[in-house]
Amino acid sequence: MARYILKRLLISVITVWLLVTVVFILVRLLPGDPFSSDKLTPDIRANLEAYYGFDQPLHLQYLRYIGNLLRGDLGFSIKYQNMPVGKVIADSFPYSADLGIRTILFASLVGIGLGVVAALNRGRPLEYLCIFIAIAGISLPDFITGSLLQYFFGLKLGWFPVALWRSFRHTVLPTLALSFYTLALVSRIMRTSMLEVTGQDYVRTARAKGLPTFKIVWRHQIRNAILPVVTVLGPITAAILTGTFVIESIYAIPGMGKFYVLGVQNLDYTIILGLTAFYGIFLIAANFIVDILYGLIDPRITLADGRRR
């Protein structure tokens, strides 16, 4: 187990290093430079470049960049004066995390529920309804669901606020819109895994013992069938993260996704690259944790060294 964790950790570290190096190279490749202004005399320009370290050789700049990154210093926004990228992340991340956690909770609960209902109603209309919801959820891009929910429940029916992030009522529509894809993914996996479990001997034994159906489903089937859901946690985190770009822009939530899209639209390169590095590291870390978690949870998984745990 320790070897497996070490190997995954090594891969994750190399990946993070690769990502931040690519980000560094891309910054140098970007068109234009931050000091382009007619009012700049060559002297001031040289001073500015010296201040930011642009006069040093590239490898020193690279080391300095890595050092800054390790200290969490991501530079300043180009568009907003005196706004460090680190502060943008610190201010906006809580909103995104709030939305993300609500989404994961709601989507896994409903997704697991739908999967179970579908599996228990094999061949009945209820199963087809659940399957349809699952396929629709995977097929509808979140910018579509987000806008449509906003239009119908916010604007037309007025049940929920159209935008902003203030009270519980404000959180309902964004969470729903962001959950749809995840919910579909979870319910698909849960249904397949429930169907597999239903054929197992221990379920038959439980039935033969005369246990009530509710107990069989709850104690024996769901508990065993829930394992594979963990495998999709990685892709789910990625999907929710990219989903927040769109959903936060649509619902005017002051989270990281909204700043990211604003950064893209304003060509605010330091914001884009700083947030990208943050997102990348966050996702790689999340994938690492999911990998380890899965190895720990399922005793049947053979780990990298070929032995069973």
Binding site: I11, L19, V23, L30, L241, T242
Partner: peptide, 18 residues
């Protein structure tokens, strides 16, 4: 293994910026 851990969307966005 290393490339697989890099988030797909992040790379696509980064490239599109440049």
């Amino acid at each position: 293994d290393v490339l697989y851990a890099i988030p797909y969307m992040i790379v696509a966005i980064l490239l599109m910026v440049v």
